[in-house]
Amino acid sequence: MNALDLLHVDRIHGHGNAAVHALRGLTIHVAAGELVAVMGPSGSGKSTLLNLAGGLDRATAGSVKVDGVELGDLSPKELARLRRHKVGYVFQDLNLIPSLTAAENVSLPLELDGVRRRPARASAEAALAEVGLAELADRLPADMSGGQQQRVAIARAVVGERSLILADEPTGALDSETGEQVMRLLRDRCAAGVATLLVTHDAAHAAWADRIVFLRDGAAVDDTGARPAAESLLTGA
């Protein structure tokens, strides 16, 4: 089963002559453990795609499934629950809460979901350890570097049993080396079985993906397909 399936998805804003087709018949599958990058010029539908995949917006037509669950069939309450349980978000602006420590930021989604404080804290510490920040668990965001804050945001996205990470330009505000560390982390999460859908305009970061989908005017125009064999590289150079 795929972590994310979009099947012939349309998203139309407005009606009649004013209707804008943000997505047209878009089909994308992301398997567990797969990192898929989406590239395209602004206005090509990248943000709409992420909002639909995360259940923040609903498709006008077509099917959106997370872990096999059809989002269109869920009540707002069920949808909110699925979002908190299954889906993690990483944004360009990190959205860390400045008055909470790293561990508190990471455990917050669990506590909101009714997990008790102690097990939530333990899960948060485990997630922070996975991103190499075990020793900074009690620091406030202001006392961390941009790269460390982004790692906290990734820990928050993967804490608990999330099966899907949605990342919107997660490396946007970072220098190239820190950006690379973030991509390495996302790759590690995928190796651990999480599916990631990454939206970026940065080819260097998209290149970390298993597959790259090119979006134009709300439709997928092309993708890089499965990886070719590594050996084909050097002989061609």
Partner: peptide, 12 residues
Amino acid sequence: MRRLQDLTRLKQ
């Protein structure tokens, strides 16, 4: 892009 993917993979 495929070439960049391969080069990135070699770097990893």
